[in-house]
Design a protein around this nucleic acid. Structure first.
Lengths: 339, 339
DNA sequence: TTGAAAGCGCTAACAG
DNA sequence: CTGTTAGCGCTTTCAA
């Protein structure tokens, strides 16, 4: 019987009450006697009454759904973030609507407009690699529409942010490699306009400095689409091959697997004498070849925190004026140990 | 201006028309003069009017959203299927709501109930590894609620299905291995109750038969949760280690990477003298070690076809009575070539 | 403490 | 061809 579509009217009729009383009783309103409440709630339970969220949304101007916008769900990091988001949305009875940008700024804008028009109550998003114009998002924020950014966030905008400690990660990566004797550490990273790119690069530079290594611009390669297209990685790897480098720090999930793919393509030549530290949330790093040292982000936690911030803002009685930036630590995992 | 919330009333007022005329004009109704339509549509365009889907849904008893239920989005196969679904949903202006079962039957049921109550217009689903009781789904189907199954489908139920040619794949896998001299071909697979498990097993058996190889029950290992938990794979691998086998046919994405993980854990011992053919839609098979031969499902296509069937049924004027089973071919990809 | 009635934004009889 | 009106299921004044 879980699938009948009872309405408040059905309950009202059955119990000889008015629809409004039933509505109030179901929502535990103070104006209803305990007795009536009990009766109504018991009956609702019995027939497995489920409020029609469409109708409720129309009235309340709420949809009890939140939108997620990421570049790709086929990305270990993002899918884990989504799991985290789901875990809290689920417990607070929000529906989750996921959409992908495939790293396209125009697609991102369409998705935002769509989700906004669809009356999602708020948005959780990581910017696309292509995004540079944030003005339409800022307009939305200014109107008070709740948006929490994670991972790839606006840097100048006043908003909630949940990110990993990217600078520290870059710093650690370099130290890890330097300690193992590497002297020419390359850096493969995503689009220049992304916050993660900048922060990780900064950490990388700080790391080099503190290790007494020179920063060489030629050892830094950017991928405009974050490695979404293998050819941008192939190009970067080909360019790097002309420099001599003995290690590389890679700044993202797709880039890491893409780099390994490219290196395997170039055969044994230089594949196995370069030490690799790469961001990845893959759960099967131990089967990768060549072997790598992984930097993991607390993706699930990141999703949780972001969702909590969002729902908190959605349900806030007063406009939110205090915006938070949550920074979570990453973990570095030794060469291909399993975890 | 893309984000104002204009209503039909606003347009009606501005144009000195009635709301219903505007509504009809926007929906290109035959009763409205071309002239009026042009005026209305131009104005709507200009102010970037977007219909409120909540209100429309309430009236039409439709939500223009479809639900997707899979075990995990962090699975190459499923995420590619979702991409395919999105591509058609997007073009037909349906919102997509994704939820995960994590291979739990109770979670699956909750998700179905939730999505149904949320008035999604239909469901696209692959059954969880744990699912055995289909009665509640059959009730829904009987009521005419549109559900299209893909990949893991009910076998006895009258419904739309989109699947890969699993039997043929198993058959081919065995032939591939036998041709390379393998004689003791093991089979690592998912829960016994899943259609994919049965079909691939059947193909495997037919393959053995036609190659003059004996079927040995001890070489077949099931994983109740489809490899969601690494320990079930570890157990299976440990058991297999006591048999002597020279090849293995693996029946799913998670199982394939899980098997490799387990083998790597067991170190070089038996890792590299076993030929591996495994289902996987990973795009980075070439970096896996040990190397494998991959069976790829046309996941994107599968998602597309399933979504088309679903939307067709949703929009059908008359109850659908003709149910289809679409079978798509798989592709076998030579050892670690890149693609 | 309960009920009647209005209205959220939209669509669809029914009239004109 | 266009307008009036009612109503989808729910919440929420306002009255009783």
């Amino acid at each position: 019987m879980a699938f009948e579509n009872y309405t408040i009217k059905d309950i009202a009729k059955a119990l000889n009450l008015s629809a409004s009383t039933v509505s109030r009783a179901l929502r535990d309103s103070y104006e209803i006697s305990a007795e009536t409440k009990a009766i109504v709630q018991a009956y609702a339970e019995k027939i497995n009454y489920k409020a029609n969220p469409i109708a409720r949304g129309l009235k309340e101007r709420k949809s009890y759904s939140i939108g997620i916008i990421v570049s790709e769900i086929a990305n270990n990091f993002f899918s884990q973030v989504i799991d985290g988001i789901e875990s809290v949305a689920y417990s607070k009875d929000y529906q989750v609507v996921i959409s992908q940008t495939h790293e396209s700024a125009s697609r991102e804008r369409l998705n935002v407009e769509h989700l906004y028009a669809r009356s999602t109550d708020g948005l959780l998003m990581a910017l696309s690699a292509e995004t540079t114009d944030l003005s339409y998002l800022e307009n939305l924020l200014k109107k008070g529409f709740p948006i929490v950014f994670f991972d790839r966030v606006p840097e100048q905008t006043i908003c909630h942010r949940v990110i990993a400690d990217n600078k520290q990660s870059g710093y650690q990566a370099v130290h890890y490699l330097a300690k193992r004797g590497c002297r020419r550490i390359a850096h493969l990273t995503s689009a220049q306009n992304l916050s993660i790119t900048r922060e990780r690069l900064e950490g990388y530079k700080m790391g080099l400095l503190s290790c007494g290594l020179d920063f060489d611009q030629k050892l830094v390669k950017y991928c405009r689409y974050g490695g979404l297209h293998q050819d941008e990685i192939d190009t970067a790897v080909a360019e790097l091959a002309t420099e001599d480098y003995d290690a590389i720090f890679i700044s993202g999930d797709k880039l890491t697997t893409g780099y390994l793919t490219a290196m395997n393509e170039r055969a044994g030549r230089d594949a196995h004498n370069i030490a690799i530290v790469g961001f990845t949330n893959s759960k099967v790093v131990s089967i990768f070849s060549p072997t790598i040292t992984a930097i993991r982000q607390p993706a699930f936690e990141m999703g949780k925190r972001a969702a909590e911030l969002l729902i908190q803002q959605i349900e806030a009685k007063h406009p939110v004026v205090d915006f938070e930036t949550v920074v979570l630590p990453t973990v570095i995992i030794e060469k291909n140990s399993s975890f």
